[in-house]
Simulated assay, not measured.
Amino acid sequence: MTKRKATALDVARRAGVSRSAVSLVLNGRANGNVTAERQERVLRAAAELDYTPNSVALSLRNQQTSTIGIITDDIVTSPFAGRLISGASRTALARGYMVLVVDTEHDMSRESTAAQQLVHRQVDGIMYATGSLREVATPAAMLTLPAILANCTDVASNLPSVIPAEVDGGRAAAQLLIDLGHRRITLLTGTLSSPAAPQREQGYREAMEAAGLGREQQHVHASGWDIDEGYRAASSVLGGSHRPTAIVCSNDRVATGVLLYAAAAGLRVPQDLSVVGYDDQQNLAANLVPALTTVALPHAEIGATAMSMLLDAVEGKATAAGHTDAGTLRVPCHVIPRASTATVPAE
């Protein structure tokens, strides 16, 4: 015979409290209404009876569906930034919410439709997340619900956003090499179409300036974002007689191109040349030979933080914007030291 599922009344009887007290405790509204001792009894009874509230009944009562919509540009259909969705999903699940993810594959015409459909399905809030840092035009339907942006900012500043601290990341990459004694450090910037590139360059220049290395000693070279572009950039900056002793790359794919060129040119990494990537891309950075020192983009933390802020807004604990400085929260980017960096080689 199937065991009968415990009810709130069963919990109330075991805890020796009223049915309404059980409801207040399990719905997070007990403080000021139920004593701490009775709250403990309710929680203990619920655990002993393996009781969980009926989510459908709660949704009807609270006029919420405990569902969050996530719109992405290409995160689901590309190999990058998947940790952002993982971080957001884990945070939502831990707080009793499910997520619906719609990936537009960079088709902007699908963004408005996706937002409208999520609103029609009565999600409690919407997150818009991008694989790479960029500005977005927020779909109008998102403004009708609690909403937040992850790894992107709103061109009209209508919504709060959670993004990586790219200036700090660029500064940390350069500082690591400076601390290892390097002074001839070249930055491969990527392309200025991404707002990340100038921010990382700003951090690089700030670290160089602080080390007494002025503009004439700062070497910035436009590269791109892919392996072949890294290879071509390396052939340009490493081909002269006064080559750098270290290179900071726009991302881990460009760093891969630099490592390939260095091997072809007979340069040993890190004995002759130190290389720093950016992203800590899964299945790449740690598996290169040598393993790549890199700046980790905190995708999981961005997703988790943005989801937590959004759920706070949904539950009325705070507005999402209340957690941010001027609508934007920046999550630190940390250096992951590995085998591709070492002290400056002897002249």
Score class of each variant (00 low, 15 high):
329 L>W: 12
265 A>Y: 09
338 R>A: 05
200 R>T: 02
315 E>Y: 03
299 H>A: 14
181 G>D: 10
259 L>S: 10
122 Q>S: 14
329 L>Q: 12
210 A>V: 08
266 G>K: 09
47 A>N: 06
90 R>G: 03
120 H>R: 13
200 R>P: 04
212 G>M: 04
327 G>W: 05
32 G>N: 05
69 G>M: 09
103 D>E: 09
197 A>S: 15
185 I>C: 10
292 L>G: 05
167 V>M: 11
4 R>V: 13
301 E>H: 14
160 P>F: 05
110 R>K: 15
231 Y>C: 02
182 H>T: 11
276 V>A: 05
135 E>M: 09
56 V>P: 00
147 A>T: 09
7 T>P: 06
3 K>A: 13
301 E>R: 15
311 L>A: 03
157 S>P: 01
230 G>V: 02
2 T>F: 07
1 M>L: 11
8 A>H: 09
207 A>C: 10
166 E>Y: 02
260 L>F: 02
242 H>K: 05
199 Q>V: 00
183 R>W: 02
77 T>S: 15
65 T>G: 01
177 L>D: 07
93 L>C: 01
211 A>F: 04
204 Y>S: 05
316 G>S: 11
197 A>T: 15
259 L>A: 05
92 A>L: 13
111 E>L: 11
214 G>F: 06
309 M>H: 12
164 P>L: 04
244 P>V: 04
255 A>R: 02
15 A>S: 03
216 E>Y: 05
146 P>N: 08
200 R>G: 11
23 S>G: 14
247 I>L: 14
335 V>E: 01
129 A>N: 07
196 A>Q: 12
175 Q>R: 15
29 R>S: 13
73 D>N: 15
306 A>R: 07
103 D>F: 01
330 R>A: 13
304 A>C: 03
148 I>K: 08
170 G>E: 08
163 I>T: 14
6 A>E: 07
341 T>C: 15
316 G>L: 09
257 G>S: 04
263 A>W: 06
105 E>L: 03
280 D>R: 12
239 G>R: 10
62 N>M: 11
341 T>I: 01
21 A>T: 14
228 D>H: 02
149 L>F: 05
30 A>Y: 07
260 L>M: 04
154 D>F: 04
197 A>Y: 03
161 S>P: 10
159 L>N: 09
69 G>V: 07
275 V>K: 10
145 L>F: 00
294 T>L: 12
241 S>C: 00
115 A>P: 08
208 M>H: 03
47 A>K: 06
305 T>L: 10
181 G>P: 00
77 T>M: 13
274 S>L: 06
50 D>R: 14
55 S>Q: 12
104 T>A: 01
33 N>P: 04
114 A>I: 01
262 A>H: 06
19 R>H: 15
152 C>G: 08
57 A>H: 06
6 A>M: 02
209 E>S: 14
324 T>N: 01
146 P>V: 02
332 P>K: 06
282 Q>A: 14
66 S>W: 10
99 V>H: 01
176 L>I: 04
161 S>H: 05
215 R>P: 11
294 T>K: 12
333 C>L: 09
85 I>S: 06
330 R>Y: 07
182 H>L: 08
41 R>W: 00
268 R>V: 00
208 M>P: 03
345 P>T: 07
203 G>H: 08
282 Q>M: 10
280 D>Q: 10
276 V>P: 08
298 P>R: 09
37 E>Y: 02
17 V>Y: 06
18 S>V: 00
275 V>T: 06
